[in-house]
Amino acid sequence: MKIKIIIPTERIQNPIIAESMVKTGVLLNIMVANIDSTYGELIADVEDGHFNRIKEALEERGAFVSTLDQPIHRDEEECVECGACISVCPMKVYTFDEKWNLFMDDKKCIRCGMCIKMCPHQALKLGD
């Protein structure tokens, strides 16, 4: 499952992610990481059965953890199927079929939100 980890300013100096992984032995596959000296936000993949353990370990160390179970929603009325979203998606969620219909594979989506900003018709949103 995909999860979002937020590291607040006061904990940004601590190796929270590494400590949590070492302590629990649960592996996080980090897909997007935006970390600087003031704030951190990561999107990672973790096996469903291990979620509770890693969540507990991360939260003990001051991180905030939430699950990303709502995929990006495409409003088919607004969408004109231009394909602007295709090149900005790091996970190749969007493709054209042979008839130039836009196809979306939400299982690959890591909710990074790049496509939302790209869409000229505001047809993509997080959640429903």
């Binding site: 394909g83 602007a84 295709i86 008839k99 790209m118």
Partner: peptide, 23 residues
């Protein structure tokens, strides 16, 4: 085709216009 080479790197392309609607 979906990608073009830029300095020998395959770079993804996006159309900003809709070919499906043009057709």
């Amino acid at each position: 085709s979906g990608t073009v080479d830029i300095y020998e790197k395959k770079t993804p392309t996006s159309s900003m216009s809709s070919f499906k609607n043009a057709r």
